[in-house]
Design a binder for these strands. Structure first.
Lengths: 237, 237
DNA sequence: CAACCACTCTTTGTATACAGAGACTCTTCG
DNA sequence: CGAAGAGTCTCTGTATACAAAGAGTGGTTG
């Protein structure tokens, strides 16, 4: 997710519409543009430093992504995230990720998953190392997702997964990390990886099912706690 | 699918970009714009009768839909449909429709499905009535899809399903109808409907799985036959 | 004769100017 | 005092003009 463009530093010549899209998308995802925030074309165009034409193209893409909705006569607005929508998103996510795990188990080249297995075995140590360790753990999860995507070899499925992950990124911001949950999630990931290495699609699917079930429970609990108390909560994965 | 806007004749005030989008989308879906066809902005804008600005917006949406891809310095082009991509699409479709069937079985209001059950019982008769009967059968399938969508009550999942159905519409054009397959499909649909009425998510999911398996087999066989002989084949659903 | 370079031409990408639709406000009337 | 209506004003939707990037072509040179 973070590797979108920054991995290689070749953002030298970039279309204005692309710049506007990435900036707005990033700001929505990291919460700088909060749900419900109004997007005025001229205002945003001036802020980003492009004209209205490319900005409109960027907004159109954001609408297609489901991050923005048009309000009838009064501009656009960042979509909001309800608790209901989280459960709904997870219903879609589960369908997609379970299928992806199954296919990955069927088609995988074992090599990258063996590497990932070793890496995930060190996850508990990583999670003892504070924020940098947590960050490196999240990088590991990204790598796992990438490995699954590559093994699945299905542009339609991978595309749908990407769309889901876009919304997930916003949800993760609603709640803080819970070290206990992260440790448990690492174990669940290991189970998925092992199933993929073993070439066992049924097991991979079920392990993914369980993982997402726990993940959703954790997210919902974190949000409940977050809205009850002020701001000391938990997140999934 | 056909009911998008034409059902009620209120296409009086329509934005130019929306007109361009619907026209291009329709022409791609019904094959008038064949895979590989080049889309030049000025050319298409003049043909449709809008300026380049709304046309670009329309093309952007088509790209998001996966119906069009940009070629670096040489305009845009309608995406093509390979046999591989059909199987890939069905892998995604299966994940989504199985999940949708399960959720529909869990949440359904039985009433519309009881009506659909009666209607599908008459499907064999319908399929004896030639093209108009076949057409009415396809309308039935649309109504079933709509009923499932409504029962699922999940915008994310339904949205993903819509995207898949867009591509399916193109695939259906690749092969002719096979009356035998249609009759069998009607039986499979009945099974799905019964499972939803019974509120049995597991059964609904499995019935959907089987239906899509058969559907894919039929489509692939139809395309094989169609490319072997000249043009007398079969299609699914 | 082939390969490379420069030029032109096509086509996209961007900016800006204009028009129209909808919302808000202020006023007026009941 | 409230509600309705007209006017204004803001913001989107569209068109067009301009700029720049890439591809194709022709010529020239080794």
């Amino acid at each position: 997710m973070y590797t979108e463009t920054a991995m290689l530093g070749l953002d030298v010549p970039l279309r204005a519409s692309e710049r506007a899209y990435r900036q707005l998308r990033g700001e929505i995802l990291n919460g700088l543009l909060a749900p419900g925030a109004a997007l005025l074309e001229v205002e945003q165009a001036e802020r980003i430093g492009v004209s209205r034409t490319p900005l409109r193209e960027a907004v159109a893409r954001l609408i297609a992504d489901g991050l923005v909705v048009g309000r009838r006569g009064r501009g656009f607005e960042v979509t909001d995230i309800s608790v209901d929508s989280i459960s709904e998103l997870y219903e879609l996510r589960q369908a997609l990720e379970v299928q992806a795990s199954r296919l990955a188990a069927t088609r995988r080249d074992p090599a990258p998953f063996l590497k990932l297995r070793d890496a995930f075995l060190t996850a508990p140590d990583l999670l003892d190392q504070g924020d940098i360790g947590v960050h490196r753990y999240y990088v590991l999860i990204d790598e796992l997702e990438d490995a699954v995507d590559a093994a699945v070899e299905n542009p339609f499925l991978v595309g749908a997964l990407h769309a889901v992950r876009t919304h997930l990124a916003r949800i993760r911001r609603l709640a803080r990390r819970n070290p206990l949950r992260l440790r448990a999630a690492a174990g669940e990931h290991l189970l998925i990886i092992d199933a993929i290495i073993a070439g066992d699609p049924l097991l991979a699917g079920h392990a993914t099912h369980i993982h997402l079930h726990q993940s959703l429970l954790s997210v919902l609990a974190a949000i409940d706690a977050g809205s009850a108390t002020s701001r000391s909560t938990t997140t999934a994965d």
